[in-house]
Design a protein around this nucleic acid. Structure first.
Lengths: 211, 211
DNA sequence: GGCGTCGCCGCCCCTACGGATGATCTTCGA
DNA sequence: TCGAAGATCATCCGTAGGGGCGGCGACGCC
């Protein structure tokens, strides 16, 4: 099989058209369908299956109206669908983790060079995991900056923080005491080098720990 | 003159390629140069000028590494350059305002349909102001939701809030007393329907008052 | 001229928050 | 098996933040 069949999922018509133009000009890639959100992507996969069309790789954006990329990825994977390659603008730690946990075959940034993109598509089609350099470096435990290495629990707290919850609400949400919430916050502050919750949110955002 | 000459400015190669593919397929549009950030865009304009090449419209992303779109727009406009059409993913009030203040000829979202994009390019080339529907509605004073209509000063406070400053720092930054900061915050909270600073930041973000 | 909005300032009060410190339990790897 | 790291909880303390007042000058609009 020489030609790989792709499904593009992105809510920006311009980006879809661009990907299509770029990828079809590269030998061996064929865009067989497009979708503007996760639900449409799944519908397209079902439609193509009934037509006997094969899809080798799904190129999926994360941020979309309607069903987002993470959920769609999870559903496609659990249904035994084709490998899903995430192609997105953002590279927050939590995004990457949830996407990979959902079964994504890879995670690329939209500012990746075209050669890398096409190579990633081919790798994903062969069942290999592909991460862009920055993402791989981010996920490599050895290369992590110790100062910004928050525990999963602390990242969870950070998420609730950024949603504007007060300590009491965070405590209830996580079924822990308010004291524990405060302890976690102190740890987060010291790791991020700040001393207030709003500064922690800001810092976490610039470090791309959260979105 | 039938063919319009465009300069594309976007730090995503994929998006640039997509725009180029889409726009050149539309009759009358020609992409004469591309740039990955604001500084490169200005350099390209200078280069094209010495070559005697004319640029009718600059299509500019806002979020870029290096010189961002707002600053680049300001410089291009103040140098008597071609009209600049902003094409971006985000539509926060503050982004729109600063871009238009910097002299942008229009503001479009990347999820705009292609027909609208090409129409906007032609309008911009003719010196007309173009805003996407959502943006225009947002900027229309009559259509504003009174509950979320913050004064300019309050938006300014909100920006400092989101950067994690404490009241004392905000006061110093704005040369006002801490009491006044508190008063502004109270007003912001009541307009946003929240009662803590973090919740205000979150709400302002979801309402796209800030980024 | 009066009314509303905006920006500015002060007081009081109470709570939430942040800092310091110390402690228990689990898990995991050296 | 011992220690490090994570998650949990607690108490004490001081301050920053938020709520409720009231007030003042400037500006624009009817």
């Amino acid at each position: 099989m020489d030609e790989l069949n792709l499904l593009l999922v992105d809510d920006h018509p311009v980006v879809r058209a661009g990907l299509k133009a770029v990828l079809t000009e590269q030998a061996g890639l064929r865009v067989v369908a497009e979708a503007a959100d996760g639900a449409a992507a799944i519908a397209q996969l079902n439609r193509l299956e009934t037509l006997g069309e094969h899809v080798d790789v799904v190129l999926m954006d994360l941020q979309m109206d309607g069903m987002d990329g993470v959920e769609a990825t999870g559903r496609i994977r659990s249904a035994g669908g084709p490998p899903v390659l995430i192609l997105t603008t953002y590279d927050s730690d939590s995004d990457i983790r949830t996407a990979l946990d959902a079964g994504a075959a890879g995670y690329l940034l939209k500012d990746a060079p075209l050669a890398r993109l096409t190579a990633a598509v081919r790798d994903a089609a062969r069942g290999r995991r592909v991460l862009s350099e920055e993402v791989a470096a981010r996920m490599d435990p050895a290369a992590r900056n110790a100062a910004t290495d928050l525990s999963p629990r602390e990242l969870e707290l950070l998420g609730l923080l950024s949603r504007g919850l007060v300590n009491r609400q965070i405590a209830r949400e996580l079924f822990i005491s308010e004291s524990t919430v405060k302890t976690h916050l102190i740890h987060i502050y010291s790791k991020l080098g700040v001393d207030t919750r709003t500064a922690a949110i800001d810092q976490a955002r610039t470090l791309r720990l959260i979105r």
